[in-house]
Design a protein around this nucleic acid. Structure first.
Lengths: 227, 227
DNA sequence: GATCCAATTCAACAGGTGTTGAATACTGGT
DNA sequence: ACCAGTATTCAACACCTGTTGAATTGGATC
């Protein structure tokens, strides 16, 4: 026995750890710990592999995070773009409600990405330039267009600035998804379960009355999200 | 010369480093780096002293942060309580505008505290219990009362839920202070200087029309903040 | 002048971080 | 049977973190 101990743990596993599985783990850890506090070791532990393996699939921690975003954003962007098509002639409040539903559908379970859109995108993370250009700006453009079409169709007050309204609509929805379920039970006796949906309806009602040309007109019934 | 070198750097400085100066430095670093990333070494560097000195005045990093909050909150709370007194018979939109102005005045230069109110308060930081009980809950209560009084006075729609409206009003103001100056130049050619005030006015206009009993009534002129 | 205390720094600790180079094992092709 | 390539781990690097105990100094008090 010349060699001290032939270790048997190295080499490929019976079932490969594909990059998508790593992204799942990363998403979960980012969600729990926050962006900065999430460590590669924690992510690797979650994925059941060694931290070094992450570097086999991704160039760095930042690249891992960017890959996470690149996986999620296109679907949101696409949904939003479809919603903004001028051939959609439904009442504007219904379309705005759909904006909220799209966020709800795609971002409900991904606080990491919400945190990014929320603010992390502003300061730092140099590699984000392409994301802002390719995904976020068009997404905002889509919502903005819904407001513009609403003005043209005589449903929205002409005094409303579409970009501001977009900012308000989207930002608040992120807050509703993020903190309302945590904050509402702190302030009332309400259970957190219905908090998000309650908040969304209350928000759209106030926002719509705020921007509508005829605020006295009744809101159409807002369908619940499909679960 | 028996001793190698009698160091002359130790001992009290000619001018004492008082705890308030440490808090100033801490606030600045928390603002720039974010809560988690702000290191005691960076704070000490900013304050021009050794990291260990921080432990002479504060028990831990968390205690330092809590002291920072305890220094800022009472003034906000007091302003808000005064504003909510039922003897204030000015039009409700003017009072809501004052809510925004109070946030603007006290939190404009303190992103660390804004970040805390925004979300950090939810997850983690065990020592925050007393703050929520003593400062934040009464603060929210004050705003809520303004809405309730507005309903009683026939200015606000009775359908409006005061707590939800409070959440929307305050949350959005934090977003306006926080990200609007950074995000607006990214999306338009507008300079960041006027972004906050423009955003605040646009926000109050939409929110007020959204909650007013008579949304057609014109907004009173909103005074600019005193700088 | 000796003594005490408050204020400050130094040097180190233990632990965590992102990252890398080398070693290893399995698989498929020739 | 060899070889190449792919996927995986190990062990270490340099650095940063919050925190602490001991050492030091200056001023006030006795």
């Amino acid at each position: 026995m010349p060699s001290p101990l032939p270790s048997r743990t190295r080499g490929p596993k019976p079932t490969k750890v594909d990059p998508d599985h790593l992204l799942d783990a990363a998403q979960a850890v980012f969600a729990e710990e926050g962006l900065r506090a999430a460590s590669l070791r924690a992510i690797a532990r979650r994925a059941g592999c060694d931290p070094a393996l992450i570097y086999y699939h991704f160039a760095s921690k930042e690249a891992l995070f960017l890959a996470l975003l690149d996986r999620r954003f296109p679907a949101v962007l696409q949904d939003m773009a479809r919603l903004a098509e001028p051939t959609d002639l439904r009442p504007t409040p219904l379309r705005l409600w759909d904006v909220l539903l799209i966020y709800h559908r795609h971002l409900k379970d991904d606080p990491g990405i919400r945190a990014l859109i929320r603010g992390e995108i502003v300061r730092g993370a140099e590699g984000l330039g392409h994301l802002i250009e390719d995904q976020i700006r068009p997404m905002i453009g889509s919502i903005q267009r819904i407001f513009e079409q609403g003005i043209a169709r005589g449903e929205v007050r002409p005094g409303v600035q579409p970009l501001m309204a977009t900012f308000f609509l989207a930002k608040m929805q992120l807050e509703i998804l993020d903190v309302l379920p945590a904050v509402l039970p702190l302030l009332t006796e309400l259970p957190p379960e219905g908090a998000v949906l309650t908040g969304m309806r209350a928000w759209l009602e106030i926002l719509w009355r705020g921007v509508a040309l005829d605020p006295a007109a009744p809101l159409p019934t807002l369908p619940s999200p499909l679960v």
